[in-house]
């Protein structure tokens, strides 16, 4: 499975498809950190929320880079379950790399207010990004061509879902649990008072349950969709 993960990452990076999401990441970071410094937790909370759709898109691009027949050859070589898992792992590795760069970037732009608590803010920011990665990868995987069987359907699922994550994630939403807690995490990190352990546990559990349901759906669909 490691070999297939490496092969897919190499195909994505060498094929040039990585350029579009890389530009999108730079634009997002430029907008967030271009206007001045803010406390670490606030800055990273918004960064995680803003990167969510980009990471989902990046996942879709990575999974769609491989030709359909090559994906099936990989399926024959390593079996269906490992083939599906290798794609998700490759996307998660890439998303982790992007988030690491996103957390380092504000230090280049002087985007972090160092007069406020920096270390707790960085830890909370790391948690916010870690809570954004699995749902973004899950959403990107669900909108990949292997599942949707067409580019148009995949793009529609990706765009509608990303919009719903923001709209249903707004304060006083009627069904916030339908989407991952990306916006909720950003709000919590924006509070003046640091979040309690209970709040953080709730966010982690919420994200874990949402991802479990989404990845289970992906795995179930991939049983018959090669």
């Amino acid at each position: 499975m490691t070999a297939l993960t490496r092969m897919r990452l190499a195909g994505f990076l060498r094929g040039g498809r990585v350029i579009s999401p890389a530009i999108a990441v730079l634009v997002v970071l430029g907008i967030i950190y271009g206007g001045g410094a803010s406390p670490a937790s606030v800055a990273y909370g918004y960064s995680a929320a803003a990167l969510f759709p980009v990471l989902a898109w990046q996942t879709k691009l990575l999974l769609d880079t491989e030709p359909d027949v090559q994906r099936r050859l990989a399926r024959v070589a390593v079996r269906a379950r490992r083939e599906a898992l290798a794609g998700v792992v490759a996307a998660a590795v890439l998303a982790l790399l992007v988030c690491t760069l996103a957390m380092l970037a504000p230090w280049l732009f002087h985007g972090i207010d160092t007069t406020k608590a920096v270390l707790p803010g960085m830890l909370l920011g790391a948690l916010a990004h870690l809570l954004a990665i699995p749902p973004a990868v899950a959403l990107g995987a669900l909108s990949s061509r292997a599942v949707t069987r067409s580019v148009r359907n995949g793009v529609a699922i990706l765009v509608v879902s990303a919009v719903l994550v923001i709209v249903l994630g707004l304060q006083n939403s009627f069904a916030p649990w339908l989407v991952p807690p990306v916006m909720a995490t950003a709000r919590v990190l924006n509070d003046v008072t640091p979040p309690s352990a209970t709040t953080l546990t709730l966010l982690v559990t919420w994200a874990a349950l949402w991802c479990a349901a989404t990845f289970a759906t992906y795995a179930w669909l991939r049983r018959t969709r090669s």
Partner: peptide, 27 residues
Amino acid sequence: IGWVPERFPADQPFTARDYLHRMASLR
């Protein structure tokens, strides 16, 4: 199982040797 599809998916950014070496690793 060794499967040879009717049309080989050549639209991949690998050389022939790199590709076959990677497929060997997959196996």
